[in-house]
Design a protein around this nucleic acid. Structure first.
Lengths: 237, 237
DNA sequence: ATATTGAATTATGAATTCAATATACATGTC
DNA sequence: GACATGTATATTGAATTCATAATTCAATAT
């Protein structure tokens, strides 16, 4: 064994079995859990965040919890008022009006990039999901419909293969999470939405990125209109 | 004074002078300062973040500083490794390749929305900045050129009038901050960039949102190519 | 009866402390 | 002399503590 290969060999020996023990910080773990709680609605918008209670629940001290809250505040999921603590952010019409165009731009990009990178297998999976979704539409099953719908958009996003894009998109989605439960669509809008999804599939199969981007953008804009109406109705009551 | 107007009057008296004392938390202040330090390059990529030193510098304890670091990590400006502390995030080619398309989408949206909302006065200001920038180009003053350039893009962004968009854009910009110092443009690229800026002004004056969006997108794509080359050169050395 | 004031309680922001982990250094072995 | 092992120091993550601000509630005045 010559001397100058030693170092290389040693490194290979070590890196041959790179199986590090994953250790997460409490802060990190809490961040994930709290995000999930907010997005799932366990912590409702407008709620005060009960620091003490959550600490007991998770069995941690206030320090890591508060660190997580600062991050969530930065992401817009909670509002922090000095000396008055944290509240789960409430969704205003203005928030929606700001978020949707940005979502549209990101979604369009996601479509464009997905067309460039997606595999045939992935397209097949999306088609299958699409058929599932249509079945839910025909059965008028709103919740399963939404769920499948979201899966399709998630797949497009991951097919785009851009972590930065995904992160921003998910961040925005978290903020407008409430909108989902609002959009009790009219039959005509629902039919239109399904038709738009047909177009999405077609553009995807043709791998026409520009087209897909445009469709997604207007699809989202239409969805926004639906949500906006629902939100305005709710605010009246 | 009738009794039923009392409450109203009282409320008016209070809300007539809403001049709350602005109190910021240390965490918030630190966040701002650290961001500036990173973006200005006072803390260089790859540097370990000296917790203790910074605490002394700012005269605060570790708690608020660490809170700020978590937020910065969430934004991708620093990397946090458990038990090993924080490092200023280093910019890889992959980061750039991910960030630029997203920046492009956001910038395009910014242009579109700016056209819809911008005032004549704002257009005039931008034109003035543009002339300044051209002057710097002709004098071959790179740094002032960049600075003015950035001001123009900032104005477009604020003219778009979408806080969500601004926040995401600035976040991304912070991450690719290093790219600025890399882009030592060739003369031909520089000339091209100025020409593109002429087009930007033209589209803006015509208030042609779609056009402006498209120009900004390709403008950024071209810039990316320049930066990419510079980065590859640097990585070789 | 209602509104206002002041004291007690609670919650928050930030500093400090403590335990666990990593790094640096020294010593011993081949 | 190179490497490994053990020890000391420093740094980090998280709990605890402390001071201050906000909230609650009873007492008082209107």
């Amino acid at each position: 064994m010559s001397h100058d290969t030693m170092a290389t060999l040693t490194r290979e020996t070590i890196s041959a079995a790179p199986d590090p023990i994953v250790r997460r910080t409490l802060h990190d773990e809490l961040l994930e859990r709290l995000r999930a709680m907010i997005i799932d609605g366990d912590l409702a918008p407008g709620d005060k965040v009960p620091e003490k209670e959550l600490c007991e629940r998770f069995g941690v001290s206030r320090t890591p919890l508060r660190e997580a809250l600062k991050v969530l505040a930065n992401d817009g999921l909670v509002k922090l008022t000095p000396n008055r603590g944290a509240m789960i952010a409430d969704l205003t019409l203005e928030d929606l009006e700001e978020a949707f165009p940005v979502m549209g731009a990101l979604e369009a990009l996601s479509g464009e990039m997905a067309c460039a990178n997606i595999t045939d297998a992935e397209i097949a999976t999306i088609k299958k999901l699409h058929l599932e979704m249509v079945a839910h539409y025909e059965a008028r099953e709103l919740k399963p419909y939404f769920r499948t719908n979201q899966k399709i958009h998630e797949m497009l996003l991951s097919a785009a293969g851009n972590q930065t894009l995904s992160a921003l998109y998910r961040g925005l989605e978290g903020r407008i999470r409430q909108a989902r439960y609002l959009a009790n669509m009219s039959t005509s809008r629902w039919t239109q939405a399904v038709r738009e999804h047909e177009q999405i599939i077609a553009a995807l199969e043709a791998r026409n990125g520009a087209e897909l981007g445009a469709i997604l953008k207007s699809h989202l804009a239409n969805k926004f209109e639906t949500v906006k109406e629902a939100l305005q109705d709710r605010e009246k009551s």
